[in-house]
Design a protein around this nucleic acid. Sequence first.
DNA 1: TGATTGATGTCAACTTCCTGACATGAAGAG
DNA 2: CTCTTCATGTCAGGAAGTTGACATCAATCA
Lengths: 140, 140
Amino acid sequence: MAPDTSSIGYLVKHAQAALHSRMEDALRPLGLSVSQYACMVLVHEQPGISASELARGAFVTRQSMNALLRALIERGLVRRPVRADTGRALPTELTATGTELLGRAEILVSEVQDRMLSRLAAAERRALEGSLLACIDALA
Amino acid sequence: MAPDTSSIGYLVKHAQAALHSRMEDALRPLGLSVSQYACMVLVHEQPGISASELARGAFVTRQSMNALLRALIERGLVRRPVRADTGRALPTELTATGTELLGRAEILVSEVQDRMLSRLAAAERRALEGSLLACIDALA
DNA sequence: TGATTGATGTCAACTTCCTGACATGAAGAG
DNA sequence: CTCTTCATGTCAGGAAGTTGACATCAATCA
């Protein structure tokens, strides 16, 4: 494969950049960044998750995730105990306000993702999902 | 589509993050960042390109691209006139050293991209390329 | 001709993210 | 039980990217 701007690698970056940009636009009215949204989705899926696990899921360092979490806690969207019952990991959870805001954010993000996939048939979407998983596995 | 960690949008981000990480590893021995590599590929494809056009192609702001270019010029990989013959745009070109280094970088990046696509048949690669283009177009 | 619009380059300040380092606590090996 | 190893949270510093602003130059239009 020629590593140029017509390569699949460049297309992956282009698609990610376009998606990120559209998600920023969609989430701006809620005062949420894409990273903050991703963090809240992960907390919603795995209540009690640690900041380090959140960092891996959001593809940032744990230092960045901790700074991000402080902002969400400050806004009352996320809750985290000061001290862990056991171990060092501090379990993170959504507050009622956070859960409500996440619900609205997910609607807006769904619209963006639906738009992204609007020109693909169901079989093509499944094939795209499978191919992306194959790429991720191959690079792991 | 549910906006969760099993969605195609998340897979796009995951694939991009994994590819970026592997490219960083591959380019580190050459002292090049992924952004610098992308910039040099664009200059190689379109000699005389302006910094603003480079910025759009690399998905960063023109301010970031100008800072990036200064580093490449400092290293003698890229050349840019102080003053344009006409207009404000300063045409950017690779030096001989830059062309040589880019050649070595492209080999290393090709290996990463080949690895990413190693589990996909030719038809699947074409389908992936087409689907990514459809996603990009739909978000434009 | 003169004014307006749009694109480019650049400066400054701010935000975000990363690397490096260190202390804490659990788990496992000796 | 003790030591080592590993993951987590946190602090400090620096690198990379962004927004906002302004001057310059070409092109367009009244």
